[in-house]
Design a protein around this nucleic acid. Sequence first.
RNA 1: GCGGAUGUGGCGAAACUGGCAGACGCGCCAGCCUUAGGAGCUGGUGGCCGUAAGGCCGUGGAGGUUCAAGUCCUCUCAUCCGCACCA
Length: 815
Amino acid sequence: MPEKTYDHQQIEMKWYERWRDAALYRAEVDRTRPKFYVLEMLPYPSGTLHMGHLRNYTIGDALARYKWMRGFNVLHPMGWDAFGLPAENAAIARGLHPRDWTRANIEEMTGTLRRYAFSYDWSREISTCEPEYYHWNQWFFLKMLERGLAYRKKALVNWCPECATVLANEQVVDGCCWRHGLVAVEQRELEQWFLRITAYMEELLADINRLEGVWPDRVLAMQRNWIGRSEGTEADFRLESTGQPVRVFTTRVDTIFGATCVMLAPEHPLVGEIGPREQERAKGLIDLRGRKDLAGLEKEGFFTGRYAINPYNGERLPVWIANFVLMEYGTGAIMAVPAHDQRDFEFCRKYGIEVRPVIRPVDGALADADTMTDAFVDDGVVENSGEFSGLASAEARRRMTAKAEAGGFGKAAITWRLKDWGISRQRYWGTPIPVIHCERCGIVPAPESELPVRLPLDIRITGRGRSPLENVPEFINVACPACRGQARRESDTMDTFIDSSWYFYRYCDPRNPRAPFDPDVIDYWFQIDQYIGGIEHAILHLIYSRFFCKVMRDLGLVRHSEPVKNLFTQGMVLKDGVAMSKSAGNVVGADAMAEKYGADTGRLFVLFAAPPEKELEWQETGAEGMYRFLGRTCRFVTRNIERARAGAAGSPDADRKALRKLHQTVRKVTQDLETRWHFNTSIAAVMELMNELHALESELSGAVLAEASEKVVLLLGPFIPYLTEELWEELGRQGPVFRQPWPTYNPELAREEEAEIVIQVNGKLRGRFLAPFGASREELEQRALAHDKIRSFLAGKQVVKVIVVPDKLVNVVVR
RNA sequence: GCGGAUGUGGCGAAACUGGCAGACGCGCCAGCCUUAGGAGCUGGUGGCCGUAAGGCCGUGGAGGUUCAAGUCCUCUCAUCCGCACCA
């Protein structure tokens, strides 16, 4: 029987055609079986689909196939169409209607993607860009509005001039738009819709510590940081002139006797009351501040001529306005304690304000104000602080806070960094916010029966910063649902992160016309067992979706509080040391890859070259190596089919060796995939097996060849769907590989006959010998000491001790 | 500054609870086969010394624990990432 050369083009097209419309990963739900829900956050493919995009897909797919073979019900939809955003961009660029573009895009993209993915394309059932989906966005919005979780207010918001829309805080990266790297975000004051994510911030923070599954520390740290809880004390410093309180927030109230001035943010409301000149100068500070890189900014400020009274000691402190004090954080005012805060120190030294140490190190003396060069910022012992002198910092904080509460001039306070989620966008593409503005009735929610509020299809996209919806009278002009008078429909649309916050719920029940989903169905599939994605979603999507989950729970829709059990962040794919991305212009296109070596080679390389959490430097030569391996495997299996079938005889010795390696490999791959996803070592193990099989090939019996071929195909099934499918058919077997049971191993066959015992002298490898498993310590010791080579090392020395690790090694300690 | 990681051959990386460092692959070298090969096959490949047998060194660095350390402890250096005048 001639061997078959590996023709990836032919094989992959054949199986792609055959499987393209099959719902491969849609489980016929048998609730008695265990379930596995794996999902990837694909970066939305707004351009060329490249190997960087496909990496997380490949990981998830391998896992899904493996779980399936292990007898799980698997839900494994493609996650990529969750965002409407790229559709809008491209529509503007191409002058196409977004809706058409989205459909065209789906067809265009899924050609390659599906050739890689080999799984069910759920984007055919759900596109978040369409009314069937945004109906339920609107429904959620109304529920939140009812509960006060959605509200509208005038606020200073981030504005991306390139997108011509507002952005949420989470979507501003380094002062720039997350989508337009170099475009600086401006601040504008606008009426905006917000979701009250802060209502859940305590829970969002607390639950980080309660996640049962595995989340990367990095992501947890980023979320903690972003939520930014900080415990401290608020205290009022009264203005000497008017008696008006200036409330400050501090985490170090124990240093308050060292306060030597009070500082206001330039935007602080009190600035206006102090005087027009001061207001003018404060404005100057704001402008100087610019919009980027606050950290590198030179500290500037000025004295207002006013004084405020320290409530703890009655001291009269000058009131300053300083550019580094932020209105958005705390109360917008601080007390400056230059001796114990580095920023205050720098500011006060610059302007000649007194530095007064009041905390000394536990085992040291108070610093000298004149000679200190840096603030002493650690906790210590409080000095020169009236009744609190001599206390440790922590204790002083407690007592001083208590005093403020008792005296009515302050309280313990917790400050959060997290702000409410601004969801208004002045884009066309997005879910219309379902409210109506009526002059008489105010803001009136659209009646639930009228959902979905549909986007008009006939629009012109201007990119001018006002929603194009405002120019569509049929959309804008409506009757007020309450009074029937003339009213205007809200023209803002929702942030598309709303879509992505719950799309994975809808995947479980995509056609439900009555509700976002059936809670019973959700109950079976959720939580997501394994979510896979890039680190870039650590604070955006992953906080929003956690928030959404808690809201849905409080609406009685779901019974869990966290959507994702285990989160995995895969490493980026680099090309020449830079993350593969369209903007960097260094992509290895999936099309080109599939053309040249095939999707199987691409998948295998991505899985083999590095463990999934690590970054992966793309190397063409590495892919070639994988291609060679596939070719060798293909030829080996096909050229032995005849001999296997004929049941040819072979050498028992070679058979035994081959079977041992085979069963060891099944064990190793199973362990590697079960406990940790070490795809790379799994694949390496199969390669080792193939090397051994090649070496023994001519001596193997038909039966062993048959068993080996079959198991190799099954072991590789999760990684290289096309070739294994083809070989499975060549072997005369029926049905998709991933519906076969995972191969089993026989521990008896896998066992080595003899143990190789290593002999060390003083911990250094000096020799080795074979011994039966389970040999006694005494026997091993004796044989080691009798070993020729060891004897030469022992000559003239005294054996102090012999350590024996059964079946492993003997270490002889000599002097 | 705060927080999170990561350091092993020429390269990507292995090494499960401390027990043979470098599996597997790439690259490179030699050979075979071929009209030819950017195809296939065989062998070699951490460094230094040695014709060889063999020896010494070797997991960022310095100490320590141990019969035994890439793995545990202490300190330190370097790189990457996230946040950042957050009071």
